[in-house]
């Protein structure tokens, strides 16, 4: 099992940025970087090299799914798991995110006290389901 420490959070709403950052860093002990837009995420991700990306769906300018696809175009970061965190959680919408390649979806509003655990569970599930890497 690889270490799971660095999370990049892409979210346009500053209040939610603050709450989530607090919840992940103080409750979960993660290292968190916030990007306020999809464009910013495209430039920053390669530098930060997160273990996981949390991505909002509804954003001005470049929305979540577009950002998702553009991130996947960069080979260095193409393998980083991405989890959508959104208020748009109808079954059809969730199915859509997963069809893009998202690992999972976290509903807003989230519980700040359990958010970190939730993400960790997702991470572990993913580790279990990931194909065994050739050494």
């Amino acid at each position: 099992m690889s270490t799971f420490q660095r999370i990049l959070y892409v979210e346009d709403e500053p209040d939610i940025q603050t709450v989530a950052k607090l919840a992940l860093e103080m409750v979960g002990g993660f290292t968190v970087k916030i990007c306020s837009s999809g464009e910013e995420a495209l430039t920053e991700t390669a530098d930060f090299m997160p273990d996981l990306i949390l991505l909002d769906v509804m954003m001005p300018g470049m929305d979540g799914p577009t950002t998702f696809n553009r991130l996947r175009e960069q080979p260095i970061i193409a393998e980083i798991p991405i989890v959508f965190m959104t208020a748009k959680i109808q079954p059809s919408e969730i199915a859509y995110y997963k069809s893009l390649g998202a690992v999972d979806v976290i509903a807003k509003p989230f519980d700040p006290m359990t958010l970190a655990d939730q993400i960790r569970i997702i991470w572990e599930k993913r580790e279990q389901n990931a194909p065994i890497q050739a050494v």
Binding site: E13, D15, I16, T18, V19, A20, L22, A23, M26, V27, A87, K88, K108, P109, F110, D111, P112, M113
Partner: peptide
């Protein structure tokens, strides 16, 4: 409902952190 969720996420999250004693 949808528009309400966005601020609610912040409020609920912030209160949750306070209530959880994180701060």
């Amino acid at each position: 409902s949808h528009e309400l969720r966005t601020p609610l996420t912040s409020i609920s999250g912030a209160l949750g952190l306070l209530n959880g004693g994180v701060l």
